[in-house]
Amino acid sequence: MRFVIALLGLLLFVLQYRLWFGDGGFMERRRLQTQVAELKQEVAERRERNQALEAEVRDLKHNLAAVEERARRDLGMIEQGETFVMMVTRSAPEESRP
Rank of each mutant, 00 (worst) to 15 (best):
M1H: 01
M1P: 10
M1Q: 02
M1A: 02
R2W: 11
R2H: 13
R2A: 15
R2P: 10
R2I: 14
F3S: 12
G9N: 12
G9W: 10
L10A: 15
L10Q: 04
L11F: 12
L12R: 13
V14E: 04
L15C: 11
Y17I: 08
R18P: 01
R18H: 05
R18M: 08
R18D: 02
W20V: 11
W20N: 10
W20G: 03
F21V: 07
G22E: 13
D23H: 09
G25Q: 04
G25V: 12
G25F: 10
F26R: 02
M27G: 03
M27F: 06
E28D: 05
E28T: 05
R29Q: 11
R30W: 10
R31W: 10
L32W: 09
Q33W: 07
Q33A: 10
T34R: 14
T34S: 12
Q35L: 15
Q35W: 08
Q35P: 00
V36Q: 05
E38H: 08
K40S: 07
K40P: 01
Q41A: 08
E42V: 02
E42Q: 07
A44G: 00
R46L: 14
R47W: 03
R49F: 00
R49A: 03
R49Y: 05
N50K: 05
N50F: 13
Q51T: 00
Q51M: 01
Q51H: 12
A52C: 00
A52D: 13
L53C: 00
E56D: 06
V57Q: 04
V57C: 00
R58W: 05
D59E: 15
D59V: 05
K61V: 03
H62L: 08
N63W: 06
A65L: 09
A65P: 01
A66D: 02
V67K: 13
V67E: 05
E69D: 02
R70N: 06
R70D: 00
A71Q: 04
A71T: 01
A71S: 04
A71D: 02
R72K: 14
R72S: 02
R73H: 12
G76F: 00
G76W: 05
G76P: 01
M77Y: 08
M77G: 00
M77L: 14
E79S: 13
E79C: 08
Q80S: 09
Q80H: 05
G81A: 02
E82R: 00
T83L: 13
F84C: 03
V85W: 01
V85M: 06
V85Y: 08
M87Q: 11
M87H: 14
R90L: 13
S91L: 04
S91P: 13
S91K: 14
A92E: 15
A92K: 12
P93K: 07
E94R: 05
E94W: 07
E95S: 10
E95L: 10
S96N: 12
S96K: 09
R97F: 13
R97A: 11
R97G: 07
R97P: 06
P98S: 03
P98Q: 12
